[in-house]
Simulated assay, not measured.
Amino acid sequence: MTLELCVLLWASDGNDDALSRYEDTVLALVPEHGGRVVSRVRRIGDGDAPLEVQVIQLPDDAALQAYLTDPRRVALAHVHREAVARTELIRVETLV
């Protein structure tokens, strides 16, 4: 069964563009782990809502772990720490 995730991302103060650049880079790795980015949207304007919301599909938990521990992604951990204030990962299923 396919694993479907909703990823909510909040940027650190002043790091909206850095967060998006980081996500551009790491999301490019998803297909190499058998997955796909179904949707990626960005908040308009200021507020407390996440800056980005993504829906990602991966074949299974093993593919998710392989993506999360991909050495290229891990090498960017310092960028993530600087740009991303908060991340929430929610397992979801598409209804429509």
Rank of each mutant, 00 (worst) to 15 (best):
L29H: 06
V84C: 09
D70E: 03
E4M: 12
D60S: 10
L19E: 02
R42F: 10
T69A: 06
P31D: 04
R72D: 09
L19R: 00
I56K: 04
G45F: 03
E88P: 09
L58V: 01
T94D: 09
R42W: 06
Q65N: 12
H80P: 04
T2F: 12
D46G: 15
R40A: 09
E4L: 13
A66F: 06
G14Y: 09
D46N: 14
R86N: 11
A28G: 11
A77S: 12
D24Y: 00
V26I: 14
V41L: 11
V41I: 12
E93D: 12
Q54E: 14
D17N: 14
R21Q: 12
M1W: 10
G45H: 06
R43D: 06
Q54I: 11
R43Q: 05
L29P: 03
L5E: 00
R91Q: 13
V26H: 01
V30N: 01
L89V: 15
V7N: 08
G14I: 03
D70I: 01
H78G: 14
T69E: 08
R81T: 06
A75Y: 01
G35K: 02
Y22L: 01
R36K: 14
Y22W: 05
T87E: 10
D16I: 03
A85L: 09
E4A: 14
V30A: 05
L27E: 04
T25M: 14
S20A: 15
A77H: 09
P59K: 04
V92S: 08
Q57W: 06
D48F: 11
V92A: 11
D60I: 07
L19Y: 03
R43G: 09
I44C: 14
I90L: 15
G45Y: 07
T87L: 15
I44M: 13
L5S: 03
L89Y: 05
Q65K: 13
R91H: 10
A77E: 13
R21W: 01
M1Y: 12
R36S: 12
V84K: 00
A85K: 06
G35Y: 02
E88N: 11
I56G: 04
R81H: 13
L3I: 02
D48G: 15
Y67R: 04
R40N: 07
T25H: 13
A83T: 02
L64D: 05
L29E: 01
A75T: 00
V79D: 01
A77T: 10
S12I: 02
L58F: 05
R36M: 11
V74D: 02
N15K: 13
V55P: 05
E23P: 05
L3F: 08
S12L: 03
D24G: 06
Q57Y: 02
L68H: 13
V30S: 03
L89D: 08
A11I: 01
G14T: 04
V37M: 09
E93A: 15
A83E: 03
A83W: 00
E4N: 15
C6E: 07
L95D: 07
L95K: 11
G35N: 03
S39R: 13
D61K: 10
V74K: 02
L76G: 01
V41F: 14
L9A: 11
H33Q: 03
W10T: 03
E88F: 12
P71C: 04
G45N: 05
E23Y: 13
V53L: 09
T25G: 10
V74E: 00
E82N: 15
T87P: 10
R73Q: 10
E82G: 13
L95H: 12
W10K: 06
A49F: 13
E88Y: 04
G14L: 04
D24F: 00
E88S: 15
L89S: 10
L27F: 11
Y22V: 00
